[in-house]
Simulated scan of single mutants.
Amino acid sequence: MTEPNPKADLQRYLQGARDTLLWKLEGLSEYDVRRPLTPTGTNLLGLVKHAAGVELGYFADVFGRPFFDEGPPPSWYGEDAEANADMWATADESREEIVGLYRRVWEHSDATIAALGLDATGRVPWWPQDRREVTLHRVLVHVISDIQRHAGHADIVRELLDGSAGFLRGNDNLPPQDQEGWESHRRRLERVAREAGGS
């Protein structure tokens, strides 16, 4: 039996969410990665941009490990940014730029995680005063929860775009089913929903 390694376990779940987010962009046009597919504008590239901002905040700022040493942060990252500016990409922000930033951010996050013990403390200035002092362990759990949630959003958005679904390439985590089987399944669920709703 191998020795438990809680930090490695947490980091594995974080990396899984990161990989899922980026995989959801593969094979799509610039239009499709930016398309708002919910009433609140949820889109794939915006989810990646947001995830970069989340990791910047929690693994850089909270533990006093600055990421933007060589100049100011982007305009969408900061207290005076437009509301939801981190949830969509402007026409002049390329997919490569945002994905590249996210990869650099997660390298910085991984360096923070490697350098600190799970009991290392930081401060989250945007949390209520009585909860601002945190450990790396708590931040890891919080960020994993957040990024996994957005990976789930990305899964739904991608399925709405072209029917692609699943966790990762080679491990879609779905029961084996062809398109006809899924359509039959969906019709069955629609019929059950109508029956339950009295239609």
Rank of each mutant, 00 (worst) to 15 (best):
1 M>G: 02
2 T>E: 08
2 T>M: 12
3 E>P: 03
3 E>G: 03
4 P>E: 13
6 P>W: 01
6 P>E: 06
7 K>I: 02
9 D>W: 01
9 D>Q: 10
9 D>P: 05
12 R>G: 05
16 G>T: 13
17 A>Y: 05
17 A>R: 06
18 R>K: 09
21 L>I: 15
22 L>R: 00
23 W>V: 06
23 W>H: 06
25 L>W: 00
26 E>P: 04
27 G>E: 10
27 G>Y: 02
28 L>G: 00
28 L>A: 02
29 S>G: 04
29 S>E: 09
29 S>D: 10
32 D>L: 04
35 R>K: 15
35 R>G: 04
35 R>F: 11
38 T>N: 15
38 T>A: 15
39 P>Y: 10
39 P>T: 14
39 P>S: 14
40 T>D: 13
44 L>R: 00
45 L>Y: 05
46 G>E: 05
47 L>M: 11
49 K>I: 07
50 H>A: 14
51 A>I: 12
54 V>K: 03
57 G>R: 04
61 D>L: 04
65 R>F: 04
66 P>G: 03
66 P>Y: 07
66 P>Q: 07
68 F>W: 14
70 E>L: 01
75 S>M: 09
78 G>Y: 05
80 D>I: 02
81 A>Q: 04
81 A>V: 05
82 E>Q: 10
86 D>Y: 02
88 W>V: 08
88 W>R: 06
89 A>E: 12
89 A>C: 05
90 T>P: 00
91 A>V: 13
92 D>N: 08
93 E>P: 14
93 E>Q: 14
94 S>N: 04
96 E>F: 05
99 V>N: 05
102 Y>T: 08
102 Y>G: 07
102 Y>P: 01
104 R>D: 13
104 R>N: 13
107 E>M: 03
112 T>E: 06
115 A>R: 15
116 L>Q: 04
116 L>A: 06
116 L>E: 06
117 G>M: 01
118 L>W: 03
121 T>H: 02
123 R>V: 15
123 R>T: 15
124 V>C: 08
127 W>D: 13
127 W>G: 13
128 P>F: 07
128 P>M: 09
129 Q>T: 14
131 R>G: 03
131 R>I: 08
132 R>P: 15
132 R>Q: 15
133 E>L: 11
134 V>M: 12
136 L>D: 10
138 R>Q: 14
139 V>F: 09
141 V>Q: 05
142 H>Y: 09
143 V>M: 01
147 I>T: 13
149 R>D: 02
150 H>D: 02
151 A>T: 02
153 H>Y: 12
154 A>M: 01
155 D>F: 11
156 I>A: 08
157 V>R: 00
158 R>M: 08
161 L>D: 04
161 L>K: 03
163 G>E: 12
164 S>I: 12
165 A>I: 15
166 G>R: 10
167 F>A: 13
168 L>Y: 11
168 L>R: 10
169 R>N: 13
170 G>A: 09
171 N>I: 11
173 N>I: 00
177 Q>G: 01
177 Q>R: 14
178 D>P: 01
179 Q>G: 15
182 W>S: 00
184 S>G: 11
184 S>K: 07
185 H>N: 10
186 R>V: 13
186 R>I: 12
187 R>F: 07
188 R>Y: 06
188 R>I: 07
189 L>I: 01
191 R>N: 01
192 V>T: 08
194 R>P: 03
194 R>K: 11
195 E>R: 01
195 E>I: 07
196 A>I: 04
196 A>T: 07
197 G>L: 15
198 G>R: 11
199 S>H: 14
